[in-house]
């Protein structure tokens, strides 16, 4: 989510809450003997408001999970999640008397809260930067979950391309997406492409075939992000340049097509990497937020009881 003018009212609301909190906190801090704490009337009010904001921020997960809820637009929920969640931290700090907790549970709560807030801020920054980077550097972006499938299709296209000039290639690997390849339409497509590939090998294509099987084909493995010369744009170009010198002119077009496929594979690898950054922070943010909410409820109940 990009922070733009649509966030204005949430920013104003959050700043207003913070200012009110600050204005009430300063005299409270100055006049409370022994320093402010969570057990005083005002401290409990801060705790109540802060917890309410935290719970509301946590409800975003439920809102996303139950898409049929007609409780405002999802984007509005995200905006509220960002700003109320952010402002809940200083409010909880007021509740704690600006301390990071003096007891075991309260200290754990404050550190978890800090991690949630910091990971959230990191996520917000990442979501500002990476989508633009994706747009610029991965023009052939696809659905993240489909990346391995698309890579497998690229491999099949490369296989067909090489077989069209060097005959049937003999490789020990089975297709990564057996279930996809075994679908009726897919199988027919494979048969057609293989039929066209049963051509007489072009003279001098052995070198291309060897290069493909040893270096290029493993590059199209759908799992993980490959390494090696083909992963870098410059090193890949140099490598293809060297191979081009060894091949007859008739095979140069095929080699260019193969290079294009590699380029596409490289983009998908970059997409995968950026996607991990774009969503990886959630692996910290969400689990810690769950633990935080659960422990906050326990803390609130025990604190209200005693």
């Amino acid at each position: 989510m990009i922070v733009d003018s649509t966030h204005t009212r949430w920013i104003i609301l959050s700043v207003a809450i913070l200012v009110v909190g600050l204005i009430t906190y300063v005299p409270y801090h100055a006049t409370t003997p022994g320093g402010p704490g969570g057990g005083t009337f005002q401290g409990l009010i801060y705790g109540f408001v802060g917890t309410a904001m935290m719970v509301f921020a946590g409800l975003l997960g439920a809102r996303k999970r139950v898409r049929i809820w007609r409780l405002g637009r999802a984007q509005e929920w995200v905006r509220a999640h960002i700003w109320l969640g952010l402002i809940s931290f200083p409010i909880i700090l007021f509740h704690a008397g600006m301390s990071f907790g003096r007891g075991s549970l309260t200290s754990v709560l404050m550190w978890l809260f800090a991690i949630v807030i910091l990971s959230g801020i990191l996520g917000l920054v990442i979501q500002h930067v990476l989508p633009r980077m994706l747009l610029d550097r991965v023009p052939r972006e696809t659905v993240y979950e489909q990346v391995p499938r698309v890579i497998d299709q690229l491999r099949q296209e490369a296989d067909t391309l090489i077989e069209s000039v060097s005959g049937v290639i003999d490789h020990p690997e089975q297709p990564a997406f057996a279930e996809a390849s075994s679908s009726p339409g897919r199988r027919a497509h494979d048969l057609r492409t293989r039929a066209t590939a049963l051509a007489v090998p072009v003279e001098g294509s052995d070198e291309l075939k060897r290069f493909y099987l040893i270096e290029v084909r493993p590059f199209f493995h759908p799992e993980g992000i490959p390494e090696g010369e083909l992963m870098g744009a410059k090193t890949s170009s140099a490598r293809f340049g060297r191979i081009r010198l060894l091949l007859p002119r008739d095979l140069h077009d095929t080699l260019r097509d193969l290079e294009t496929l590699c380029e596409e594979r490289r983009e998908l690898a970059l997409q995968q990497k950026l996607h991990h950054w774009l969503h990886g922070w959630l692996l910290v943010h969400i689990p810690i937020a769950y633990a935080l909410l659960l422990l906050s409820v326990i803390h609130a109940l025990m604190s209200l009881f005693y």
């Binding site: 696809t142 299709q153 996809a180 097509d257 294009t260």
Partner: peptide, 15 residues
């Protein structure tokens, strides 16, 4: 043989 990607083929890329 150059790579030819038809619209149908591209659409089938996505499960």
């Amino acid at each position: 043989m150059a790579i030819v990607r038809t619209t149908k083929a591209l659409a089938k890329r996505i499960d």
